[in-house]
Amino acid sequence: MRGLQISLNHTQNIRLQKARETLESLSSKANSDASVIVADTIPLNYEDGVLKGHGTLDLNGEVVATICGVVERVNKLIYVRALRARYKPEVGDIVVGRVTEVAPKRWRLDINYSQYAVLMLSSMNLPDGIQRRRTAVDELNMRSIFEENDVICAEVRGFQHDGLHLQARSQKYGKLERGQLLTVSPYLVKRRKQHFHHLEQYGIDLILGCNGFIWIGEHVDSTEDMMIEDQVSKAEQERVYTPLNTRQNICRTANAIRVLSSLGFIMTVEVIMETVSLSISQNVDVHEMLGSEFFVLTAEKEVERRRHTSSKKRG
């Protein structure tokens, strides 16, 4: 919740402080991923065979944190994940990026990394859906596929001699339109099995990029035959406007993410949808979601959710 820039009255400040203290208490009691600062001792659940990873040090028989962050455990590997660290790509990550340059046989994208990522023409599906070698004509028509400032979803392929490479060989990847692109701290988006979500009740798609770029937009069917369309159907699609109700749902979901990001809560589709439902149940208008009262309500809702989760685990 650090860095929260909202104007709270005295009562709201007390409520928010109480919620923060309760969340810290619940985290220390029920969550193995405890926050640590430099020189904190990391409690161990294993007596032997512990593997000490990044941000840890063996000191007088104890594992001590060397950086500020959150303790992560993968089997017997223990390491500290720095909270404010820049995004570090891993092969297979789902990322959302913005095209910054159309270069020969490749696009360069901003993916919130220390350098631009590269999407090769040969590493994506062509609009006609046919698997074939790329020709000089394809290279000349690159701007008809993606151009500067287009928002794209892709997958991290790996590092090569000229930088970080992406790929978009699946129907679920490609250009994103009719929506909003939000930026949150990358540590708020954990790697999960599913980063694509169709929120059917709201008619929108939600993509949680591992790089901290989150896309909320009108739902698009990503079926196999979508890429094999004639020009008439494409022109018809371009003339269709996003319904007002869908646009309101996009803005409501975007504001829910803004509130959760400011409070420093981990982004999951469940938490985001609970925040959206909270705003609806409390009759909070879309623009009122960024007011101080809804920030406090969201923090109190998170306390309630974590208490419920903790009691279920004990039960």
Rank of each mutant, 00 (worst) to 15 (best):
N125Y: 00
W107G: 01
D48Y: 13
Q131G: 03
E139H: 04
V64P: 03
Q115L: 07
Y46N: 15
D40Q: 05
D58I: 09
K88I: 12
N112W: 00
S25C: 03
L126P: 03
G92E: 10
T100S: 02
S32W: 10
V80R: 02
P89L: 09
P89M: 06
Q115A: 09
S123Y: 06
V137P: 05
E139C: 09
V137Q: 14
K76F: 07
T56A: 11
Q115C: 08
L57R: 15
D128S: 06
A82F: 08
E101W: 06
Y116I: 01
I111K: 09
M120H: 13
V118T: 10
L57W: 12
D33Q: 07
K105A: 10
V71P: 04
T135Q: 01
L59R: 13
I111S: 02
Y87P: 04
A65K: 05
P127S: 00
R132C: 05
G92D: 07
V64W: 00
K29H: 13
K52I: 12
G92F: 08
V64H: 01
L59D: 03
Y87A: 00
A39Q: 14
R73W: 10
V64S: 02
S122D: 14
T56H: 07
E47N: 11
G129P: 01
P104T: 12
L140V: 00
D40A: 09
E47L: 05
V70F: 13
L23M: 06
Q131R: 13
I111H: 03
I130W: 02
A39K: 08
I42K: 15
A136F: 03
L57P: 10
V38C: 08
I42C: 10
K52D: 03
V80K: 01
Y79Q: 11
T66Q: 13
G61T: 02
M124H: 12
Q115P: 05
N112F: 06
R84L: 09
N60L: 11
M142T: 03
G97M: 11
G53P: 14
S27Q: 12
K52Y: 10
A103P: 02
V50H: 04
S32H: 13
A85R: 12
D138A: 08
R132E: 10
L121D: 08
E139I: 02
L51R: 03
E62A: 13
E72D: 14
Y79K: 01
M124W: 01
A103C: 13
I130V: 09
T41Q: 12
D93K: 03
Q115N: 11
Y79A: 04
V70W: 14
Y46G: 03
S28F: 08
T135K: 13
S123G: 09
N112Q: 14
V63K: 01
I94S: 05
